[in-house]
């Protein structure tokens, strides 16, 4: 299954607004994407509650996985999203 590791750039971690942007982007791919803290159990990345519940802090590494048509492209796009700090002044 295609997967990617990425460091979360958001200064507040994956909470509130960054989490909601990420979950919306995942949902838009139409694919069953999962997210895990590297080494941890994967959770459904379409669920904002599960994503926030991971407690991902700034600079934590996460693993994204997805299956299906266009999974690689979708993952690349999501990695790009997580690698940007959306709260940068």
């Amino acid at each position: 299954m295609p997967s990617r590791n990425v460091k979360v750039a958001s200064r507040v971690g994956l909470h509130a607004r960054p989490a909601s942007l990420f979950v919306q982007a995942v949902t838009a791919t139409g694919l069953p994407v999962t997210i895990a803290k590297t080494g941890g159990d994967p959770v459904d990345a379409r669920s904002i509650l599960m994503v926030m519940g991971l407690g991902v802090a700034s600079e934590d590494e996460v693993t994204l996985s997805a299956e299906g048509d266009g999974a690689d492209d979708a993952l690349d796009q999501l990695v790009g999203l997580l690698a940007i700090d959306h709260d940068a002044p």
């Binding site: 509130a16 607004r17 989490a19 909601s20 979950v23 919306q24 959770v43 459904d44 379409r46 669920s47 904002i48 509650l49 599960m50």
Partner: peptide, 10 residues
Amino acid sequence: ATSLMAQDPG
């Protein structure tokens, strides 16, 4: 963000 919680598949 709250509205996303109200459609959370999990």
